[in-house]
Every structure is written in C-alpha cells, then in structure tokens.
C-alpha cells in the first residue's frame, strides 16, 4: 500500500529531534566515529549544489561524472568507477536520470556503498513521451531536480539521511538545509511576483525535452506536448512532421527548448509550427559549482515568466 505522507513527523521537528536523541543506541552503533570528513558522491550537477549547500565545509562532495559529460549519454569509465571506492556514501536521483550509478557501485571496490535516495519523499510524476504513453505506471519523470518544491523535498531528505551517517554534524546539516530551502523559496516567490496582474492566459506549451513538468506545475501550467519521442532521443523526420501537425492542431504558442543540448530540428519546429521558442537549462552541464542550482533555477524561472508575459500580450 502506498504511504500518505510517510516521512513527515506529525507536528514538531523538535519532537522529532528529541525522538532521534532517544533512539536506541544500536541504530547508530553501525556508524563509526569519523576522524575525517565524510566523502559524498553525487551524479548530477543539481545534487552537487544540494549537497554542497547542506554540508558546507563539514564534508567533501565528489562528482562521479566529470564536468563536461552529457548525463543522457554517459558511459561509466574505469577511473570514475575507481573513484567510487573512495566514497562513504552516494546521493542519487534514483528515478531514472542516473541509473548507471547502481551498476558503477556494483563494479567498484565498494559494492555495498550506502545510497541516499533523494526522491524518496517526492510525489513523482509519470514519464513523458513513449514511456508515459505506454501506460507503465512505474516509469516516472526523473527531472525532479528542475523544480523548486521537489528540490526542497530532496534537500530535506538528503540532510536527514546524511545526519544518520554523520550524527556529529546532523544539526548543522539540518540548519544549512533549511537556510538553502528558504533561499529557493525566495527565488520562486520573486519570479511569481513578477507575474502579478498578468491574466491567466491558459496558453498551451510544449517542451522539446520531457524535463519541465515539475517546474511548470509550480506555475499551474501543464505541458501539452513533448517533442522528443523518448528521453534524449531526437525525433525522426516522420515524427517531426507529426509533432508539427500536432502543435498546429493544439494551438501551441510557446515551446520550451533545451539550452545545453541544442538540436538543429528545433528551428524547423519554430519555423513550421509558428511557435515562440524559449530555452531552459537542464542544469546538467558545465562545471560543478555550489551556486549553480540557484543561478540556473533563477534563470529558468525568469525564462518561464518572460514566456508567460509575452504570451499574455
């Protein structure tokens, strides 16, 4: 049976902390006392930002995929698998964007490396594209890291779980997570405030990549069509024609494209379907930086706001 709200204490975090203090010693008995900072592996850029903001300088965050690799087409390399042997714990997306991590861990010197499932408490949406249309109820959209709300849920989960591995710093992790969440909420509030007075245009949007459902739900926008037939797969000419016909038929005026992984066929869609193109970032490319998630989320929010304002004119 599914859970209603499995991870939330009923009322008070203080009560939860008191309970945690009162837990039997055996719960933490397996956790050795650390004489050096925790080494935490991450697979994707947003998770680097999440964990770096949570731990500050109390632990080390280690990207498993080198900067510059496209996570959609990443094939594990021997040196990356070797690096896993130096980790204490790995933080994963776990719902489809870094499934390679599990196989890398299995092949590493630490096949039993603990894994933190960031999305354990996120209400997951169904996959888009072919996987979604196939009606398989367990294939989910893995792009939870592109939304503010789902990111806060993941940050809360990661902070809580890291506290179990590193009890001495658990309170600091929680405090940092809360401060980070407040900054993320401010980003969202600032973006939505810019839309004050804009009428609900109920305009239809499409996306090239099936990545932005979580983000657009925060604005109350539903994605009408996704161009890619499957995650990271370019459409064939026949599929492209079908998409253009569908966009025309559905009166789609706005299409959110992909900033980091541009494709030539996107211009064809813009020209033939007469839609306005707005590029969003997948936050999965470039250097790993602590402020990357906030910076690029602010840019995505600003792009959505601009699209809504221009569509309402």
């Amino acid at each position: 049976m599914p859970d209603a709200l499995p991870s939330f204490p009923r009322r008070r975090m203080l009560a939860g902390l008191a309970l945690a203090c009162a837990l039997p010693a055996r719960v933490f008995a397996a956790v050795p006392k650390r004489d050096k900072p925790l080494r935490i592996g991450v697979t994707l850029h947003p998770y680097y930002s999440y964990v770096a903001n949570i731990v500050g300088d109390l632990a080390e965050v280690v990207p498993v995929i080198p900067a510059g690799f496209n996570p959609h087409a990443y094939e594990p390399r021997a040196e990356d698998i070797k690096r896993i042997g130096t980790l204490d714990v790995m933080v994963v997306n776990g719902v489809g964007h870094d499934d390679f991590a599990e196989r890398m861990i299995a092949a590493s010197e630490k096949p039993n490396l603990p894994v933190i499932e960031s999305n354990a408490d996120v209400p997951l949406l169904a996959a888009t594209g072919l996987a979604g249309r196939a009606g398989s109820g367990t294939v989910v959209n893995p792009h939870t890291f592109l939304s503010v709300t789902a990111s806060i849920a993941q940050v809360n989960t990661i902070a809580r779980e890291l506290g179990r591995f590193d009890p001495a710093n658990a309170a600091a992790y929680q405090a940092n997570a809360r401060a980070f969440a407040r900054r993320l909420r401010q980003l969202r509030a600032d973006a939505l405030a810019e839309l004050a007075g804009v009428p609900n245009a109920e305009f239809r949007v499409a996306t090239i990549h099936g990545a932005y459902d979580y983000l657009l739900r925060e604005f109350g926008i539903e994605v009408t069509a996704v161009v890619e037939p499957s995650h990271g797969i370019e459409p064939s000419p026949a599929q492209l024609k079908g998409t253009i016909d569908r966009l025309r038929g559905l009166d789609v005026k706005v299409i959110f494209s992909e900033m980091d992984f541009p494709s030539a066929y996107v211009d064809t869609i813009r020209r033939e379907a007469g839609v306005q193109l707005y590029p969003l970032t997948h936050i999965s490319y470039g250097e790993y930086e602590i402020d990357k998630f906030e910076r690029e989320t602010a840019r995505n929010l600003a792009t959505v706001v601009r699209a809504i304002r221009e569509a309402a004119q």
């Binding site: 709200l5 939330f8 204490p9 009923r10 009322r11 008070r12 975090m13 203080l14 408490d121 996120v122 209400p123 997951l124 949406l125 169904a126 109820g137 989910v140 939304s147 709300t149 789902a150 806060i152 849920a153 809360n156 979580y214 739900r217 925060e218 109350g220 926008i221 539903e222």
Partner: peptide
Amino acid sequence: RDDLLAAEQGLYADLRLVPGELA
C-alpha cells in the same frame, strides 16, 4: 501520479512540505 489534475499535483507537492516547516 495518475488521478490528479496538473494544478492539483503542484498543490499536493507544495502541501507535503508544510508539516516539516511548522517547527
């Protein structure tokens, strides 16, 4: 995942975070 409208899914995700913030 399957039974809610898009706006309801957004509200539901927001509401799930609220109990943890009440401390």
